[in-house]
Design a protein around this nucleic acid. Structure first.
Length: 592
RNA sequence: GCGCCCGUAGCUCAACCGGAUAGAGCACGAGCCUUCUAAGCUUGUGGUUGCAGGUUCGAGUCCUGCCGGGCGCGCCA
């Protein structure tokens, strides 16, 4: 429970008491009563809209209601002042002692500070990356990877039971094309044992989409394992074998890329597996039994009729009954399932595994797919399960302000592993989280490693390193005893009287609310903004010591005060580390 | 043509299920190093929240219509 939730309880209790006393009508609906930080800190520490939302139903003027409420709130423990402002806000200013106690709590909780139970143990499935197993991850994938992983960690901290899942698209035509390319590399790898003519013939007769070098070692390994076994074999024979082999290899590559980013999955679900187990038929039977599948002819898209358009009867899902624009095809003309059909089966599978909330992280180019998938989930679960789709916009790569060419057509995409190697895992992860997922993100190689204030990674890390440096210094001055968090939790917090010291504690006290808000909104970027603001406040306080020696963290002749300030610094380090942990970024001990 | 996302300070972006005087950083102006890390800090200038309506005590936020940008648009994944 964050401090605002705690005070909301107090405010509600006071309002109920007012009703008992007959000061206001009883039976008011208090659901809309909120206790929040005011936008402007000058208004106080907390504000409530109670008078504004209740005045109407109570047939009172907001300001009259607010005055009554403020009068009673002022009598609460910890409340230094309660006043009415603006259209009927009641602002609370709390005693410093209240905030001092929060700092002690922070230190006692340590890394668990900010943990919340709002999730109530609810099972949430976060599916992300899910890149086709046709090659290494590129930089675009890494954004989705980081966003999904951080969102999962955030939800865990907020008390959800999270599964990180990767959906392996190993059943479509793409992996057959991949297998052909791997077979070509296999023939090449056999060298003298296969004539140039055979290879040339194969290349001529096949549509080789994947010509990247990364398949060369795959072909070599296949040749090593199976020798010439598949050279004379019919396509029907070698295709399943080579396909399985190359998918394995590609998933190995992808796992290595994910490792480099520090990302682990709990579950890999195979599309081919779903199909083989008959889950597509299951799902479609389910929809059919509800009359949601029919054979029909779709209208061409308005204003953009494809040249080869011809009306054609198709097996369709009644997506339009669940909010989609048109009904959607389930079967291709060759009889195979569409991607959508297997995706329906996959989402039904997730729902049946007990996830009431599913989150899919996709690239922005899949935006047109969101409505139909949500329609399908609605239909499959009778509206009981929610599907939230986070669309990640493109990442623009820059080198000192110059765009890095990255056209997919030219095959010049930048590998995720290369970016990690260039700037490090921590920088990649943090920067990818400094924007809302649906906003474009510019990633400049030079900037993300720059040691300056406009590099948020550096700025936040520096705050943590500064605290660690401070403790190293403190150990020299005061000895290392009594500097652990438990001991500091008992420090004389009442010595922290400067407005900026108390102000910094207030920022720390806001952390649990940030966790809850960001988790419920599925918006990990809020953590990045919070950490940046926290670092700024800390650096500001630190620097006040430059102007006024009395405000330095370490005052040699006053160990009691020093220990209180060390407690404050430790609180900052704890929260920064806590936030960075959600991001999968390692807090540093010193800047190098 | 239709759908989705976006439009906030010169630039890059925040604004917590509708809250008070819309905030940060960069850039620009003015200060701060015999002092715990100045790789930094303080402070100032800067806004018709794309436009026009609507909803209400209150709108950047919700609704409608325009304008501009991005993505997508029957069997690809």
């Amino acid at each position: 429970m964050n401090v605002f939730g705690r005070f909301r309880g107090h405010v509600v209790a006071v309002i109920e008491r007012m009703a008992e006393d007959g000061a206001i009508p009883s039976g008011l609906d208090l659901a809309r009563v909120a206790v929040e930080p005011p936008r402007d800190a000058n208004h106080g520490d907390m504000t409530t809209n109670a008078a504004m939302v209740l005045a109407g139903p109570a047939a009172m003027k907001p300001n009259a209601f607010a005055s009554l409420l403020a009068e009673r709130l002022a009598r609460l423990d910890d409340v230094a002042d309660a006043s009415v402002a603006g259209p009927g806000f009641v602002n609370l200013r709390l005693e410093d002692s209240f905030w001092h106690a929060r700092l002690a709590e922070t230190l006692q909780s340590g890394p668990a500070y900010g943990d919340s139970s709002v999730g109530g143990g609810e099972a949430v499935n976060v599916e992300f990356v899910s890149a086709n197993p046709t090659g290494p991850l590129h930089v675009g994938h890494s954004r989705g990877a980081v966003v999904g992983d951080a969102l999962a960690a955030l939800l865990e901290k907020a008390g959800y039971d999270v599964t990180r899942e990767y959906y392996v698209n190993d059943a479509g035509a793409q992996v057959d094309k991949l297998a052909h390319a791997a077979y070509w590399r296999y023939l090449e790898a056999l060298g003298d044992k296969v004539s140039e003519d055979v290879i040339d013939g194969f290349v001529r007769d096949s549509d080789l989409e994947y010509r990247g070098d990364y398949l060369i070692p795959v072909g070599a390994r296949l040749a090593e394992r199976d020798g010439v076994k598949w050279v004379e074999a019919a396509r029907d024979e070698w295709l399943p074998e080579v396909r399985a082999f190359v998918i394995d290899e590609m998933m190995g590559l992808i796992r290595r890329d994910l490792d480099a980013l520090g990302i682990r999955f709990d579950v890999f679900t195979s599309e081919r597996g779903l199909v083989a187990e008959g889950k597509v038929e299951d799902a479609l039977r389910f929809l059919e039994a509800r009359g949601l599948i029919y054979t029909g002819v779709l209208d061409p898209p308005k204003g953009k009729k494809p040249d080869d358009w011809e009306p054609r009867p198709q097996t369709l899902f009644r997506a339009s009954a669940f909010g989609d624009d048109v009904d959607r095809p389930l079967r291709k003309s060759d009889g195979a399932w569409t991607y959508f059909a297997t995706d329906i089966a996959y989402h039904l599978d997730k729902a049946r595994r007990g996830y009431q909330t599913m989150i899919d992280v996709w690239g922005a180019d899949h935006g047109g797919y969101v409505k139909r998938m949500q329609a399908a989930v609605k239909a499959l679960t009778d509206g009981r399960c929610a599907l939230d789709v986070k669309l990640c916009q493109m990442v623009g790569l820059f080198e000192n302000g110059e765009p890095v060419a990255m056209s997919k057509r030219a095959g010049a995409f930048v590998a995720a592993a290369d970016v990690v190697e260039r700037v490090g895992r921590d920088a990649v992860r943090f920067i990818m989280l400094t924007r809302r997922n649906d906003a474009h993100l510019d990633f400049d190689f030079a900037k993300v490693t720059e040691r300056s204030r406009d590099n948020p990674v550096f700025y936040v890390q520096y705050a943590h390193a500064r605290v660690r440096s401070l403790f190293r210094h403190a150990a020299e001055v005061f000895g290392s005893g009594g500097l652990d968090a438990d001991a500091l939790a008992r420090a004389a917090m009442h010595r922290l009287t400067d407005a900026d010291e108390v102000g910094l504690i207030k920022v720390l006290a806001g952390w649990p609310r940030v966790v809850e808000g960001a988790a419920e909104a599925h918006e990990p970027h809020r953590v990045a903004y919070y950490l940046h603001a926290l670092a700024a406040q800390f650096h500001a306080l630190w620097n006040k010591g430059t102007d006024d020696a009395n405000l330095r963290f370490l005052v040699e002749e006053d160990p009691e005060l020093s220990r209180a300030r060390l407690a404050l610094a430790q609180g900052v380090a704890t929260v920064v580390a806590s936030g960075l942990r959600i991001f999968g970024v390692t807090p540093v001990e010193e800047m190098r």
